[in-house]
Simulated scan of single mutants.
Amino acid sequence: MTPVSVDTVIFDWAGTVVDFGSFAPTQVMVDVFAAQGVPITLAEARGPMGLAKWDHIQALGREPSIAARWRQRHGRPMGTDDVDALYAAFMPLQVERVGGYSALIPGALDAIAALRGKGIRIGSCSGYPRVVMDALVPLAAQRGYRPDCVVATDDLKAGGRPGPWMALANMIELGSRSVAACVKVDDTVPGIAEGLAAGMWTVGLSASGNEVGLDWDAWSALSPPAQAAACRPAQDILSQAGAHYVVRTIADLPAVIEDIDARLARGERP
C-alpha cells in the first residue's frame, strides 16, 4: 500500500525523549573503566553512543588511546573476557542510576500528544538492554510517556544498531502500512543508520543528545548564538550520517512530520 502520511514514529530514549544530554550511559562507562584503573573522559565515553552496551564497551577498548591505557595498566590488549567483565560491572550500575536521568526532555509530551492527535503510533527502541528498560519504562510512564511499543537491544536475535532490526520490530508490532510511513528519531549516528537501514525517514536531534552533551540547565544558560555554535558540529555529524532532517529537540518534531506528510503526498519516499 502506498502511504500518504506518517503512521508510526519510533523514538530512541536517552537524549531523545529522556535524559537531556544523554548522561546516564556515558557517566557509568567512565566509572566502570575507572574501576579497572583505566581512566576515560566523558567525551571518549560518548564516542560509540547508540550501540548496544556490550558493543559500546568493546568499541571503547578498540579506540587507540584507550587501548594504549588499557595495555599500560593490564599488560595486554582488552579481550572478550575483559569486555564481559566491564559489561557485568556496567549493568547493575546502569540499572541503579537510570532513574536519576529519567526526566523527560522539555517539549516531549506536547510533541508526542501532537503526533497522537494525528493518529500516529509511537514506537521506541534503545541501546539499553531489557533489564535497564524494565527500570526506565515505569519511571517514564510516571512522567506521562507511554510509548505503544518498547524494543530493547537484546530483545532480538538479529542484534541491535546499526542494523534495522529494532526499528522493523516496532513497525511490525504497531502494524505500520509501509516503511515509508515510518520515521526514526535519534540523537546518534548508529540510531540514524538504523532508520536508514530499515528504509525509514530519519530525524536527528542535535541539541538534546549525545553530540552536544550538555544537560538542560547548561544548555538553557547559553545565549542563542552559543547554542547555534554548540549545535553546529552535531548537525554536521548527523547530516553526514544521512539524516533526512536535523532539528534541535523532540519539541521541533511536529513541523517535520507535517513536511514529511507533504512529501509523501507528492509521491516522495525516504
Rank of each mutant, 00 (worst) to 15 (best):
P138S: 02
G100E: 10
Y87C: 04
P138G: 10
S102P: 08
V189S: 14
S176F: 00
S126F: 12
M171W: 12
I120S: 12
G159R: 05
G160D: 04
S102W: 01
T188D: 01
R116V: 15
P92M: 03
A114E: 14
A88K: 02
V131F: 06
I105K: 00
G123N: 07
A89G: 13
S176P: 07
M91P: 06
P164W: 08
S176V: 06
P92H: 09
Q94W: 13
R121E: 06
G159A: 12
A167I: 08
V212D: 13
R177H: 15
R146C: 12
A167M: 03
A135G: 10
G99D: 05
Y101K: 06
G99H: 01
A167D: 02
D110P: 13
D148M: 00
V189K: 09
P162N: 02
G191Q: 09
T202W: 11
A193D: 14
V150R: 03
A167Y: 02
G144R: 06
I112T: 12
I172F: 15
S124E: 05
R130A: 15
S102I: 03
G204A: 13
M200A: 14
C125W: 03
G107T: 09
L205N: 09
A197L: 04
A88I: 06
G123W: 02
G119A: 14
G117L: 14
L139T: 10
A111S: 15
D148G: 03
M91N: 04
R146P: 06
K184H: 00
